[in-house]
Design a protein around this nucleic acid. Sequence first.
DNA 1: CGGGGTTTTGAAAAGTATCAAGGCTTGTGG
DNA 2: CCACAAGCCTTGATACTTTTCAAAACCCCG
Lengths: 238, 238
Amino acid sequence: MLMIHQAAHLIEESPLLPPYPRTASRPVDDLSARLARMPVKILVQHDQLFREGDDKTSIYQVVEGAFVLYRLLPNGRRQVTGFAVAGDMIGLGAGASHRCSAEASGAAKVRMLPALALHRMADEDPHLGMQLYDAMSQELAAVQDLLMTVGRLNAAERVATFLDSLSQRNARAFRPADRVELPMTRCDIADFLGLTTETVSRTLTKLANSGIISRHSGHIRILNANALEDVAAGDQSV
Amino acid sequence: MLMIHQAAHLIEESPLLPPYPRTASRPVDDLSARLARMPVKILVQHDQLFREGDDKTSIYQVVEGAFVLYRLLPNGRRQVTGFAVAGDMIGLGAGASHRCSAEASGAAKVRMLPALALHRMADEDPHLGMQLYDAMSQELAAVQDLLMTVGRLNAAERVATFLDSLSQRNARAFRPADRVELPMTRCDIADFLGLTTETVSRTLTKLANSGIISRHSGHIRILNANALEDVAAGDQSV
DNA sequence: CGGGGTTTTGAAAAGTATCAAGGCTTGTGG
DNA sequence: CCACAAGCCTTGATACTTTTCAAAACCCCG
């Protein structure tokens, strides 16, 4: 059961802006200020913010935790389109209904802004439209990167690319680049990369056996970043 | 060699707005009027409007012909991100450089609008930003659809989905839905769907042998639309 | 300490890519 | 008008990658 919880908790501005698994949008300046005054909703693992096809009543900004954004086929197959972490916007887009589902991958907090409020803001602030344009451009770029990864890379290249992008995200946030947290399940990663959990697992095993990474619970460590990039680029096999 | 050709040729407003292979943007209202007064550039097959990484000096609207939008990996593998036909905008996006290459798949004409002019328009017209936001939202939706197709469908489902979407595009344009033009090469289709040309060809052969389609030069005919949708949905194999 | 879910591992099967060659189209030039 | 050349498309045989099915190992939490 979802709960609304009032709290004056400021969103820490995370300085990372990776080109990749980030499919959710980065905060839009004017929006951030407005959102800071909005109520916080608390979610537990597997709570859904919304589902594909739902009316777009609100947009959200992640305060804490991580979300998995995905679409489902009638037969149950799933494509994860992105992961959203603290600072990311979820639910932007001009349509009247959500084009994907958003689910908390663990305990999480979001701020919510009614879609109507966003429209009012757009009428009043002539710059907001261009800021939203900018945010969507970045989302588009991220999905195009993912499309290339899924459409043209083999399993090892996909997994290595994924780890490398997370590592680079850390570097941008001035965190150690060699420790990569994996808050999502193998299944989430597989559905993101267009693989099966077994293939993801096997590939991680091979990378570990090659001495390129080491596995630990909840995270992996990159032992040889150059080799990882070589694998991602297809210049080295595992 | 590319040539600039002045002509007062009005862009015919094509009524189609498919959710799918359309990755290029639909014209934005205020933009259309402005573009109608811009010069027309004439291109021949394989002429490139721009390449990935080029400075974004102009944006374009297709007047005639078709364009292939794609990204390349260092090793030459290619992912086609979309096809642009008459009426579509090419090159929209907030970044300073192009994120993909655009190549004419045959003789083509475009109108070009300098990027600076677009920025000036945005400053003057407060609605333009939201219209661009809208256009990018649609592009994003199209790429997400494609991502799902490439990441989670098998070869037969991908090809059937592709043909079905082209058919539906025709229906929306009040053209016969059973005749589907294929102005692009098998290679373009393969690079769009994340397959090889051989697999695309084999799949078309199977669909033809099943009596679902018939093949002709430059187009295919859909003989059994229901069966095609079943194949696309994975409810029927070929 | 136990139990459910996740992750890893193995063996076999299926699907797609690769390599190779032949056929078809289209446009060109004799 | 026909022959030819070049590129595109199709088809076949084979190899490889990834999935599928199955089971064991691991981990976290109560």
